[in-house]
Design a protein around this nucleic acid. Structure first.
Length: 325
RNA sequence: CCCGCCUUAGCUCAAUUGGCAGAGCAUCGGACUGUAGAUCCGGGGGUUGCUGGUUCAAGUCCGGCAGGCGGGACCA
């Protein structure tokens, strides 16, 4: 793969790369490292999957992959006891592998290094450089909704910034909700004489209820290991206004999952409604926008393809993590 | 450390003098749309923060504890 093809592969489906020039340099470097951190979660859903698929792209483009199982971060974000969070992280590791990440990806537990002296010293250094308002603002889309804000909330982003240098990463991937923390890293790491990584943001998937963001806590997600019947029922009840693409979770799922491996998709449609169609993503958008494709036909198609797309996940989990969550 | 106020359904809040714990929103189901939503109809949902006491009877009165909010004090 030449540089141009790598850039193309990496940027496909992302919101932004900060910055493309720096990314090119990293691609020319020997053994560059790309990382992403996740708070261990009882369910890994399609929103997580978008970022894992992008990590797979980065892996194909020559990056060494580090996945941070951020147990302390989840703990700071009031997700439960550290013990339970660690247990969940083992399940998550298998979920990520099930999506096709190759075995040489490294999985790192946050608590294995986040209490070392060098690490905490750097957290304290950043604490002296970061205003409370800035730290809180960076957490706006990440913190559990609560009026009773805890100090943990402002420690969280500082730790995330230090993770990047502790793990020696060249590139940090995250959903768009990570943007403000990433920007904090880009701004403050140089101030403690460290190089900031390239930051790439993927779009956020809307919840199936049409909510702003698919999230485990809101229950508006499709999990990657949901059984076919569950996927079917969830898509059936999903928000999907006719003619509207903006904020439409079903169109988003089609975009990111059906067209990942297919140039065109087959839409099966009863004769009385116009018969079958074979469409590229752009054609699908146009037809849907013009209301020439009914939401139900879209839903049926997405259901069928998504169940097939996630089949390897279910097969992997059954074989390697049969106990489930 | 001291004082005051607060804690009731997933959320926001009602409940008379101590007398069968309710409403709105959310959720779930049905109707209507060739999807969902919207709309109409219907259902479920509770250890009233925990704990001890008074009483025939406690969400309500008294004590203790926990959590939250506010104030005071301490500041050599």
């Amino acid at each position: 793969m030449d540089l141009e093809a790598k850039m193309e592969l990496i940027s496909k489906g992302t919101m932004e790369i900060i910055s493309p020039e720096e990314l090119e340099k990293k691609l020319n470097k020997a053994n560059p490292v790309a990382y992403i951190g996740y708070e261990p979660s009882g369910k890994i859903h399609l929103g997580h999957a978008i970022t894992i698929l992008k990590m797979i792209d980065l892996q194909k483009a020559g990056f060494q992959i580090k996945i941070l199982l951020a147990d302390y971060h989840a703990f700071l974000n009031a997700k439960g006891s550290l013990e339970n969070i660690k247990k969940i992280s083992e399940y998550n590791k298998h979920c990520f592998l099930s999506l096709g990440l190759s075995n040489d990806a490294q999985f790192i537990l946050g608590s294995d290094f986040q209490t070392k002296e060098e690490y905490t010293t750097q957290v304290y250094q950043l604490a002296t450089l970061t205003t409370l308002v800035r730290a809180k603002r960076s957490m706006a889309q990440i913190t559990r909704e609560s009026e009773h804000h805890k100090v943990a909330e402002v420690i969280y982003p500082l730790m995330q910034v230090v993770d990047m240098i502790s793990l020696k990463v060249d590139l940090s991937l995250g959903g768009l909700e990570q943007r403000k923390i990433h920007m904090l890293a880009r701004e403050n790491l140089p101030r403690i004489n460290e190089e900031a990584p390239v930051c790439i943001h993927t779009p956020l998937l809307h919840g199936i209820d049409g909510g702003e963001k698919m999230s485990t806590s809101k229950g508006n997600f499709i999990a990657i290991d949901d059984i076919p019947l569950e996927i079917k029922e969830k898509i059936k009840k999903s928000y999907c206004p006719a003619g509207i693409i903006e904020g439409n979770p079903i169109m988003e799922i089609a975009h990111h999952f059906l067209f990942r491996e297919n140039e065109k998709i087959l839409i099966k449609r009863p004769e009385k409604f116009g018969g079958d169609l074979e469409l590229s993503y752009l054609e699908l958008r146009k037809l849907y926008q013009n209301k020439e494709l009914h939401p139900l036909d879209l839903k049926n198609t997405v259901t069928e393809y998504l169940i097939e797309f996630l089949e390897p996940v279910r097969a992997y989990m059954e074989k390697n993590y049969p106990q489930g969550m």
